[in-house]
Amino acid sequence: MTTEARPPLDGVLVLDLSRVLAGPYCTMILGDLGADVIKVEPPGGDETRRWGPPFVNGESAYFLAVNRNKRSIVLDLKTERGREVVRRIAARADILVENFRPGTLARLGLDLAELRERNPRLITLSISGMGATGPESGLPGYDFIVQAAGGLMSITGPPEGPPMKVGVAVVDLTTGMMAATALLAALHARHATGKGQHIDISLLETQVAWLANVASAYLVTGEPPRRYGNAHPTIVPYQTFDAADGPFALAVGNDAQWQRLCAAIGRPDLAEDPRFRTNPDRVANREALVALLAEHFRAAPAAEWIRRIAAADVPVGPVRTVPEVLESEQVKARGMIETVEHPTVGELRLVGIPFKFSATPASVRRPPPLLGEHTAEIEAELAAYVP
C-alpha cells in the first residue's frame, strides 16, 4: 500500500469496551477510517450477538451491521486477568471507548483517569444514557427510552395519533457519529498538546442537541411544538401526497420553487393566489393549500408527478421500501453495498461507507468478527510489545 493510499486513521489503535449500538457504531466509523479496533467482549459476547431473528449461520444481522473492521478478544472484566489485559492494551492505545453505566468501570478496577495517567496520550470516551452528572445520571438509557424522554417521540407521528418512535435507533446512531467526531477533534488537539483527554457524551444530550430548529422555535416563542406527521412545521408544501397509485414526497423549500411547481403541475393559479404567494402565507393557510394539492395529485400516478416536478427542478421523490432502496441503481453506483467474506456466513453483504476520500480512502478490510476470533492473535501481540 502506498503512503497516499493509507486510510486517514492508519496507525491509530482503538480499545473498544462498548457494546450494543452507539459505541460500536462509533468504533466502526473509526475502523472504516483505518483504525485498528480491538473489541473486548465478555465470555457471552456483545448482547447484540443474540438479538434476532434474523440470524445467518448463527450470526445476528444486528451485530453484523456495526462491527466490521474490528478484532474480537474475549475478556472477563470481573477477573484480575481480564482487567490486566485491558490495562496492557490501554497502555498502547490511542483511544478507549466505553458505554458502561457511569462509575461501573471504576468499580471494576479500571478507572479511566488511572489509565490516562499510565498512558498520557490516551483519549477516553464514555457514552451513557443520561450523562455522567445530574439527577438522572445513574439511569440506564436505551435508544427507545431516550427517544421518549428526550422529546423526539412527542414530535413524531400523525397529528391526532400517539407519540411514535423513529424506525431506526436514530439516537444511538447519532450519538455514535457525535462520539466519532469528538474523538477526531481530540486526536487533532493531541498533536498540539501531546496529551489525551476524557470525553463525556450521552444519548440524552445528543438527542437534545439535534432537536435543532424545533428546540429553537420553543426557546424563542415559548410555544410547545406539535406533531405534523409527514409535514413540516414551518415550510409548506413539504410532505407526502397520495397520487393515483401511491404516495410521493414533495419538498418546496422557497418561493421560486413554489412558482415552478405550480407551473409544472398545471396549476399556475395557485402561485397567484394571495393566500399562497410566500412561504409564511402558505404556512398560515396550510390546510386550504394541502387540500387543493391533495385533490389535484390524486388525478395521476406518482411517477408522472415526479417526472414533471423534477423537470422543473423542484425536490421530489418516490417513497421507497428498504429493499427498493438497497437494490436501487443510485445506491449501487455510490458503492453503498459492500461484500466481504465472513468465516461462517461466507459472502456477506453490508451497508457501505458514506464518505468517499479522494486520497486516503476508507474501506471495509475485515468482516465482523466471530466471538473471540482474535484473542490469541492480540495476546501474542501484547506479549511481543516493548514500550
Rank of each mutant, 00 (worst) to 15 (best):
A312V: 01
R298D: 05
T344W: 06
Q330T: 09
G346L: 06
A302D: 09
E338P: 10
V319K: 05
L348G: 01
E329A: 15
R308F: 07
H296W: 08
R320W: 09
P354T: 02
P318H: 13
T344P: 13
V351G: 14
V319P: 03
I353Y: 01
S358A: 08
E327T: 13
F357G: 06
V340H: 02
P323D: 13
E304M: 11
E338Y: 06
W305H: 06
F357M: 11
D313T: 07
V322R: 03
L348M: 10
K332L: 14
E338H: 09
I337G: 12
E347K: 15
E327M: 08
G346R: 05
I353C: 05
P354M: 01
A333T: 04
A303R: 15
P318A: 15
M336H: 02
P354H: 00
V345Q: 06
E341S: 14
V322F: 10
T339S: 07
V316I: 11
A311W: 05
F357H: 08
V351Q: 02
P343C: 07
I306Q: 06
M336F: 05
V314K: 00
G317A: 00
S328Q: 00
A302C: 09
P323N: 09
I306S: 11
V340L: 08
E341G: 11
V325S: 12
L350G: 00
I353T: 03
A300R: 13
D313F: 06
I306L: 10
A312M: 00
F297M: 02
P315K: 00
R308S: 11
G317S: 06
T339V: 15
H342I: 06
H342Q: 08
E304H: 11
T360R: 12
H296P: 00
R307S: 09
I309G: 08
P354Q: 01
A299V: 05
V316N: 02
E327F: 12
L348A: 01
W305C: 03
R349C: 05
K332Q: 13
V351F: 12
A300N: 03
F297G: 01
L348D: 04
G352D: 01
A311T: 00
E327R: 14
A300T: 09
P323Q: 10
I353K: 00
Q330I: 15
L326Y: 05
E338R: 09
T339A: 07
E338I: 12
A310V: 03
K332M: 12
P343H: 04
V351M: 10
E347T: 15
E324P: 07
H342F: 04
R334P: 04
T344F: 06
P318D: 13
A333C: 09
R308Y: 04
A311E: 08
R298Y: 08
A311K: 04
G352I: 03
G335M: 05
I337Q: 14
S328V: 10
P323L: 10
G317D: 00
A302T: 03
A303Y: 11
V319A: 04
V316M: 00
V345E: 03
V331N: 04
R307F: 06
R334N: 12
E329N: 08
T339L: 07
E347A: 15
H296G: 03
A359T: 10
E347F: 08
G346M: 09
M336E: 04
G346D: 11
W305Y: 07
A302Q: 07
A300C: 09
I337S: 14
V345N: 02
G335D: 10
S358K: 02
I353A: 01
V351S: 14
V325C: 09
M336V: 04
T321I: 13
R320F: 14
E329S: 13
Q330V: 10
I306R: 10
